[in-house]
């Protein structure tokens, strides 16, 4: 409730920020269901390489996306220190494999900047906004571009 109040008052939002290598990213907190430690995933046949497989999230079958690999970088080598951010996009849930979660930030509408043209096409598609906070730059992720459940035809 408190959250909604503040969002209404300045048009801003809460974001969860996390690290991937040296870079900092963020997702809107409203999309985040929970954050949990990495556990070994069951690989899925015929899946894109960035899908690490599925894990058991209290009885639900949750696909986990290696975000680093999704961005075209090398696959992560997950350890128990790695973290899975469980997000919800529309009716589907999936996990994002990231190095570590930094903190929860409140950003206002003015803090949000469009992604400059220098970024490559693919990266731009994944990043909705840039947030400049002090000397940090946080890339706010467009979750729906990361993963959507595939229909039979697409698979």
């Amino acid at each position: 409730m408190e959250l909604d109040e503040r969002q209404k008052s300045d048009g801003g939002k809460e974001i969860v920020s996390f690290r991937l290598g040296e870079e900092e990213f963020g997702v809107e907190i409203m999309s985040v269901r929970e954050i949990r430690g990495w556990s070994k995933a069951t690989p899925l046949p015929h899946s894109p390489p960035y899908v690490r497989g599925v894990i058991n999230l209290r009885g639900a079958v949750l696909p986990v996306i290696d975000l680093n690999q999704r961005f075209g970088e090398a696959p992560s080598d997950p350890s128990s220190r790695h973290v899975v951010i469980v997000v919800q996009v529309e009716n589907a849930q999936f996990g994002l494999l990231v190095d570590a979660v930094s903190d929860i930030l409140h950003v206002t509408q003015e803090d949000l900047q469009d992604t400059p043209d220098v970024a490559t096409g693919e990266t731009r598609a994944f990043i909705r906004h840039l947030v400049a906070l002090d000397d940090r730059m946080i890339r706010l992720i467009a979750l729906e571009s990361i993963f959507t459940p595939m229909t039979a035809e697409a698979a």
Binding site: L44, P45, H46, S47, A60, P149, M150, A152, A154, A155
Partner: peptide, 14 residues
């Protein structure tokens, strides 16, 4: 039985 469709989609052979 746990469906895969909701969160992932269908997979050939699975």
């Amino acid at each position: 039985i746990k469906g895969l469709e909701d969160n992932y989609g269908t997979i050939e052979g699975v």
